[in-house]
Nucleic acid binder design. Structure first.
Lengths: 221, 221
DNA sequence: ATAATAGTGTCTTTCAGACAGTATTAC
DNA sequence: GTAATACTGTCTGAAAGACACTATTAT
């Protein structure tokens, strides 16, 4: 599982320090039981290993890794990869219930030595999350039930990396019917109070939000 | 496996008549061997069951189905779903090497009684193919190595269902660098000869081609 | 010449991006 | 008042959609 959240405006993933092999980190996960779906097994390991409850997170199936030799010690292990998104939940921090699990900034995680093909899985998971933000309302999974427009924009900026124009973002989000819904509440801070929104009924965004990195790639003709 | 091709300008899928259960059809597939990846197993069953070689098709992993009870007779079968795309190849028609395999128009296939959760898998596979055409060059997998612009447009029209404006399609495809490459050859028919193209080096299309059905959904605000 | 198919020009509309400007609060 | 943050108006440019037009062949 590639478990992602925002901490301090930066995208973090959970890595586990495998004591058996010093200095090598792995993604959280575990075996399936008989009579249990892969999804249920993912929820179970999230609870057991990471201390996250079913209602704290959103799961998205990534893909299945089955190359022989991907885990040298076993003849062949087939793993179903998942992307797990949650709002930042300090009280369920991995250190509370396990020994070696930690939130690591993804930029740092990419440079660390990971077990087996976990670096591939991490890369696939982060890329999936980035892509999903373009055309789904999945960004709201990174936030508490009520959030401001700035906070939602902050999710996009953190996950995609880069700056989004507040005015255009605001207009785009509100132009998609059912993306977000006004709650009528407001959050008071230093300046003008911000309206609070919650996730709306529409799961897909069309036309999609355009990603900074993708835009640059497109214009580099 | 959801095996898709174009026949007579219409999208077809392979279904297999399961003799054990009269009138119930299933998707082609089979078990994995030890020491074999899911991808290799897919290629093997394509050869054994359907008579399609590795170079005739393009594989795209769909997702993994693992709900307990999805196959009532077994305690729990975990299946890795694949979308398989190929150019129409009469000489490798499924009937050549198997008894009950047939190309069925997908519209018809959706109305037929399918075994287990194969209707879900078929739906997921067709939807995946439709989505992939938007932002990848996968449409070329439905065509022989050299093809005309009309033929490429025909793939989009068949898979998406609906009409695309020839002029705009032509301009859009050529505006994406590396989507297609001119071969210098031409195909002569009834009117002006058509230039032949082959798939270019760019796997992704950005900005994507916009799908008719998605557009209508968006404009129905 | 005519029909048929391939391909181009161009106008309109839509929408993203830039950025100046206005609104509402805490202090 | 000032500073800070939230939000709006408006201009520009890029690209999609519509559709009239030109090009090149077989007959």
């Amino acid at each position: 599982m590639v478990v992602l959240t925002l901490l301090g405006g930066e995208l973090h993933a959970i890595l586990i320090d495998t004591r058996a092999d010093a200095g090598v980190w792995s993604l959280p996960g575990g075996f399936m039981h008989r009579g249990e779906s892969a999804e249920r097994a993912a929820y179970r390991h999230l609870e057991e290993v990471v201390g996250l409850g079913e209602h704290d997170v959103v799961l998205d199936q990534l893909r299945t890794y089955s190359e022989p030799g991907r885990q040298p010690h076993d003849s062949r292990v087939v793993s179903v990869g998942w992307v797990v998104l949650g709002a930042q939940l300090p009280q369920t921090a991995p250190s509370a219930r396990t020994t070696g699990a930690q939130w690591i900034p993804v930029d740092v995680a990419f440079t660390m030595p990971l077990a087996f093909d976990h670096a591939d899985i991490l890369r696939d998971g982060v890329e999936r999350a980035r892509a999903r933000l373009e055309y789904t309302n999945l960004a709201t999974a990174f936030l508490p039930p009520e959030f401001t427009m700035s906070e939602l924009r902050g999710v996009y900026e953190a996950v995609w990396g880069g700056h989004l124009e507040p005015a255009n973002f605001h207009r785009k989000v509100l132009s998609v019917p059912g993306f977000v819904v006004e709650t009528g509440h407001a959050r008071h801070g230093r300046g003008r109070p911000a309206k609070l929104y919650r996730a709306g009924p529409t799961p897909t965004i069309n036309p999609p939000l355009t990603r900074v990195s993708v835009r640059e790639q497109a214009s580099a003709r």
